[in-house]
Design a protein around this nucleic acid. Structure first.
Lengths: 236, 236
DNA sequence: TAATTTAACTTGTAATTACAAGCAAATATA
DNA sequence: TATATTTGCTTGTAATTACAAGTTAAATTA
């Protein structure tokens, strides 16, 4: 990434890492703008550009006359916002298993989202995963990735890895937003079996199309969630 | 508002109004940064500050080397709209009726969101609405507005008016975001009656806390939605 | 004519300077 | 002592200048 030599990115990365590593803890003040100028040998506009990025991403909060403090990470940003489902539950006790390992195939003709010519032509990488909390099935997710420039994805992606992280680290694809349709449905026999609930039990169903930083590249996922003991939470 | 004399706010307001009034239509380019400088007799950093605010609010999109274009308004930001599974329909056919007219009362002690001292002290304006499409109940919504500085709200708000518009036009309160919890539940007897569905039918249930431009002012709503023929849609 | 180069735009980054405004603690005053 | 005031910090706004980098279209060249 050529952005590495941009000065405001350097300051931004320094602060973001310090926050993530808890060098600056939640509620702590970060160095003042002038201190940061001296630390990195840049001027205030450059420091302010870095700080502004951190504000827009929710890492810090600024107060005129006082300074800037570290903000708690937005937890629970999940299913309904733009974070991976692994982060959504914010819980190490959630286990993810493949019900169907990633496999290249064509999109179904009755795919519920409008597909581009390229998406139809190249087909998709399709897989099914189930997420369990304390060995209890919680969420069943079916994912379709258009098979465009994803060399090595199937080898890089595994049960213990976050889909979003693999896409970002290996393919430089970042999730920016998306659209979703939401239903409450009765569990079909198949879904009931997978989620270990009674058939006809209410199930939360979402069809999602996620937009990415790669032009024309979208990501589709269909979710079925047992909300008897848990609920989905999202911030927006 | 003392911000009126800030130069970047002037440029920002000029552009925002021009976009809302469709002087600059969706997809249109707005004047270049240098043109805006001359138009308002300010320098580029000032113009860029205004543009950046518009970008962060989703009004425009910038492209290095090309310029900035007007973006379609984000209907969602997580605020969900109702769509038909089978056909697209125009919102004109959706009718809203009060099941309980707005009334000042205290918050329940078991209110599912954490309330501030002021919210508990001043109580809330509470009302229940139902939305019907072709006389078929679709959505039941219970709303709680903290009764703080809302003089005249009950008189201004009626069935044919948008809650968000009344809050914005009469009280200068803008919805900025929020958080929501989502369940698929079985309809209770009461909900089934209201939505005219079988008891035990699956119902989409949301509890939402909306954040506003007014410091410390939140808006709470509980939704029950029949998703047999329709679904909720949202962008994020 | 077709491909290439150049020129003229656009936004992006960055240093410099200056003053305004919010905040808190030390200081001066009653 | 209790109340104002000052001082010195913080971030906010804004002009100025300079060059980098992406995009497009006109001009040049083969």
């Amino acid at each position: 990434m050529s952005e590495d030599r941009l000065r405001y990115v350097k300051v931004y990365n320094f602060l973001k890492n310090a926050i993530i590593n808890q060098t600056y803890k939640i509620g702590d003040p970060i160095p003042s703008e002038n201190e940061l100028c001296h630390m990195h040998s840049v001027t205030r506009p450059t420091v302010r550009q870095a700080l502004q990025k951190l504000v827009s991403e929710g890492y810090i909060l600024k107060h005129q006359g006082k300074g800037s403090i570290v903000m708690p990470p937005k937890t629970g940003l999940g299913i309904l916002s733009i974070n991976s489902t692994t982060q959504a539950f914010n819980n190490n006790e959630v286990q993810t298993k493949f019900l169907k390992r990633p496999e290249v195939q064509l999109f179904n003709t009755d795919f519920p989202f409008q597909l581009s010519e390229n998406e139809v032509k190249f087909g998709c990488i399709h897989f099914k995963r189930i997420r369990k909390l304390h060995d209890k099935p919680l969420l069943f997710e079916e994912t379709y990735l258009p098979n465009i420039d994803l060399q090595g994805f199937i080898d890089n992606f595994s049960e213990d890895k976050s889909l979003f992280n693999v896409l970002f680290n290996h393919h430089k694809i970042e999730i920016l937003g998306g659209e979703q349709k939401i239903w409450a449905i009765q569990a079909t026999k198949e879904i009931a079996e997978i989620l270990d609930i009674k058939p006809t039990a209410p199930v939360l169903h979402l069809k999602r199309k996620l937009h990415t930083s790669k032009n024309g590249f979208f990501l589709y996922s269909f979710l079925y969630c047992n909300t008897e003991s848990y609920y989905l939470q999202g911030e927006f």
